[in-house]
Structures are given as structure tokens and as C-alpha cells.
Measured scan of single mutants.
Amino acid sequence: MQIFVKTLTGKTITLEVEPSDTIENVKAKIQDKEGIPPDQQRLIFAGKQLEDGRTLSDYNIQKDSTLHLVLR
């Protein structure tokens, strides 16, 4: 499925993911596309910070959802 990741600069990254993918996995995909190390990434969805060990389906993230990427 496709999800979107919006950065603070207003750029939107499109990712191909599975509901069973972990947040860690998603961060690795963002690193592949953007070169941002996962340890600098914070992903936010519906006002919640997403934890590495959980999956997209744990957070009820569905296709065409938009996550927000904050760098630390």
C-alpha cells in the first residue's frame, strides 16, 4: 500500500509499505529515499509519536495515510 510522509519543509515522500511493516522498517525506507538516518527520525501520526517496534497496523495506519516526519 502507499503512504505519504510529510517533512517539515513541506516536502511529501511517497512510500510503498505493508500494514505489517514496523515503524523501524518505514524509517529505513525513508533513509533509502532521503538519506536521513533512522535515529534522527521521529514519525508522528494522529498526534502520536510512533514507536520503532510497533507496526503500521498497530496504529491503524491505512493506505494513503500521511505521517509527519520530525528530525531530532
Rank of each mutant, 00 (worst) to 15 (best):
Q40D: 14
S57P: 05
D21T: 08
P37L: 14
F45D: 07
H68E: 15
D64G: 03
V17W: 04
F4E: 12
P37R: 10
T7K: 04
L71Q: 04
K27N: 04
Q40R: 03
P38K: 15
P38M: 15
I30G: 01
T14M: 03
D64E: 04
Q49D: 12
Q41K: 03
V70T: 12
E34R: 01
D32Q: 09
D52R: 02
S57W: 05
R72V: 06
T14S: 10
T12M: 06
T55W: 08
A46P: 01
H68A: 14
A28S: 11
N25V: 13
E16D: 05
K33F: 15
K11L: 13
Q2I: 15
K48Y: 12
I30A: 05
D21E: 08
V26H: 00
S57I: 03
Q62N: 06
Y59W: 04
Y59R: 01
H68R: 03
E51I: 02
R72F: 04
T9F: 02
G10Y: 04
P19R: 12
P19L: 02
L69M: 05
A46S: 13
E16I: 13
D52H: 09
L56T: 05
E24D: 06
G10P: 12
N25Y: 03
D32W: 13
G47Y: 02
S65Q: 05
F4L: 11
E18D: 07
T66Q: 02
K6I: 14
E34A: 05
K27Q: 14
G47P: 01
G53A: 11
T66H: 15
D64A: 14
V70K: 09
T55S: 06
R72G: 12
L50N: 00
E24P: 03
T66I: 12
T22Q: 04
D52A: 02
K27W: 12
G53L: 10
T55V: 15
Q62A: 11
G35I: 10
L71M: 08
E51S: 05
I61Y: 01
L69Y: 04
R42K: 04
I30F: 09
L69P: 00
E51N: 05
I23V: 15
L8P: 10
H68Y: 02
P38R: 15
K6A: 12
I61H: 01
F45H: 09
L15M: 06
L56Q: 00
L43P: 01
L56H: 00
S20Q: 04
V17H: 13
K48P: 02
L67K: 01
V5H: 00
T14P: 08
Q49N: 12
D52K: 02
I36E: 05
P38D: 12
N25A: 15
G35P: 15
I61T: 04
N60H: 05
T9K: 13
S65F: 04
T22A: 04
V26T: 09
L56F: 01
Y59S: 03
I13A: 03
S65N: 13
S57Q: 07
Q41V: 12
V26I: 12
T55E: 15
L8K: 05
Q40Y: 10
F45E: 04
D58A: 07
V17E: 01
K27P: 00
Y59E: 15
G53Y: 11
R72E: 15
P37S: 11
T55F: 09
D32K: 09
E34H: 10
Q31M: 09
E51P: 03
N25I: 06
E16V: 09
I13N: 07
L43G: 00
E18G: 09
G10L: 11
M1P: 02
L8W: 02
S65M: 13
E24I: 08
D39Q: 06
K48F: 13
T7Y: 09
N25L: 05
E16P: 03
T14E: 10
R54A: 12
P37G: 08
Y59F: 05
E18M: 11
P38Q: 12
S20W: 13
M1H: 06
E34Y: 05
L71K: 14
L43E: 00
R54N: 13
E18T: 10
L43I: 14
L71G: 09
V26S: 01
F4K: 03
I3T: 02
E34I: 05
R54W: 10
L15G: 00
I13Q: 06
E34G: 04
Q31A: 05
E18N: 14
N25H: 06
H68F: 03
T55A: 09
K63W: 10
V26K: 00
K29E: 12
L71Y: 15
K48R: 05
Q40S: 12
F45P: 00
L71R: 08
I23D: 01
D39Y: 05
G35D: 04
Q31R: 04
P38Y: 09
G35T: 03
I23S: 02
N25R: 15
D52V: 06
D58K: 04
Q31Y: 08
D58G: 10
T9I: 07
L56A: 02
I30H: 00
K48W: 13
E16F: 03
L69V: 06
F45V: 10
L15S: 01
P37V: 12
D32A: 04
T14I: 14
D52P: 12
T66G: 12
A46H: 02
V5E: 00
V70N: 13
L67H: 01
K33M: 08
S65G: 11
T22R: 14
Q62T: 11
G10F: 07
S20V: 13
E24A: 10
P19W: 10
I23F: 06
G47M: 14
I30V: 12
G53Q: 11
E16S: 05
S20M: 08
P38A: 13
R42S: 15
V17T: 07
L43D: 00
Q2A: 11
L71N: 14
T14F: 05
R42E: 14
D52G: 10
G35H: 10
T66K: 01
D64R: 03
I23N: 02
T7S: 11
Q40L: 15
I13M: 15
A28V: 07
